[in-house]
């Protein structure tokens, strides 16, 4: 761990409509170093998913800046941000978000194909094998259980060798046993590939397995803890 991979400065997000303004995030400041495991926790409505979206370049901030791997996301248009995501970012979603009309293998191949890479099938099969689903490569998402879909999603997230992995409640829709397996898989792959992990969760037990926890309430940081190695073992 060394260089900063994510820098957030004075970040705010305000939604306006005809009747009023809603401040979802207010004056957020933090940095994440390369290789760190970082979690954002808070109750529902605390702004954690909004913060994740802003950090990943999925949304525009109202004020403040986000720098991802040295690239300032503010001022980039959507296509430029997409390019950044394809190059540096992996995603794991609570609802898996697999492309329903593609097979498991095709889902894993897409990020590499978006890069213009050819001969991606072999690498994708290897990743599927790594998550234990090589024999299900030609199945569609509807033919897979929740846990299996999430494993495909993880394989897809790592297919483009991202620098940073954003996970939004990755075990939110899974039972406890499956959740454990998914957590283990994420952390293992993270360790193997040296990826920075940014995870949004309301599960404190999961959060405690990361290196740092950022606690949000009412759109503001109320606490930032660095966990010792014994705490997140």
């Amino acid at each position: 761990m060394g260089n900063k991979i994510l820098e957030v400065e004075n970040l705010s997000k305000v939604y306006s409509n005809a009747h009023r303004e809603l401040t979802v995030l207010s004056d957020i400041n933090f940095n994440i170093k390369e290789g760190e495991k970082f979690s954002i926790v808070g109750s529902s409505g605390s702004g954690k998913t909004t913060l994740l979206g802003l950090c990943a370049g999925l949304d525009n901030a109202s004020t403040g800046t986000v720098k991802l791997n040295g690239i300032t996301l503010n001022g980039l248009n959507e296509d430029e941000r997409a390019k950044v995501r394809n190059a540096h970012v992996g995603f794991v979603f609570q609802n898996f978000q697999l492309l329903p009309t593609l097979t498991a293998l095709e889902n894993v191949m897409v990020p590499l194909e978006l890069r213009g890479e050819s001969n991606v099938r072999k690498r994708s099969l290897e990743l599927l094998d790594r998550v234990g689903l090589a024999d299900r490569h030609d199945h569609y998402p509807t033919q897979l259980s929740g846990g299996e879909q999430q494993r495909i999603s993880i394989a897809r997230a790592f297919s483009n060798s991202p620098k940073i992995l954003f996970a939004d409640e990755p075990t939110g829709n899974l039972d406890e046993e499956t959740s454990q397996k998914i957590e283990s898989l994420i952390f293992e792959l993270n360790r193997e590939l040296g990826t920075t992990l940014v995870m949004v969760t309301h599960d404190l037990e999961l959060a405690n397995k990361t290196d740092r926890i950022l606690r949000l309430k009412g759109g503001q940081i109320i606490e930032e803890n660095e966990l010792t190695s014994t705490e997140n073992a």
Partner: peptide, 16 residues
């Protein structure tokens, strides 16, 4: 729409 949003997340441009 959801399919397009997922593609965009993974780095696909609008034109793609």
């Amino acid at each position: 729409i959801k399919t397009v949003a997922i593609l965009r997340c993974m780095g696909g441009k609008g034109i793609d």
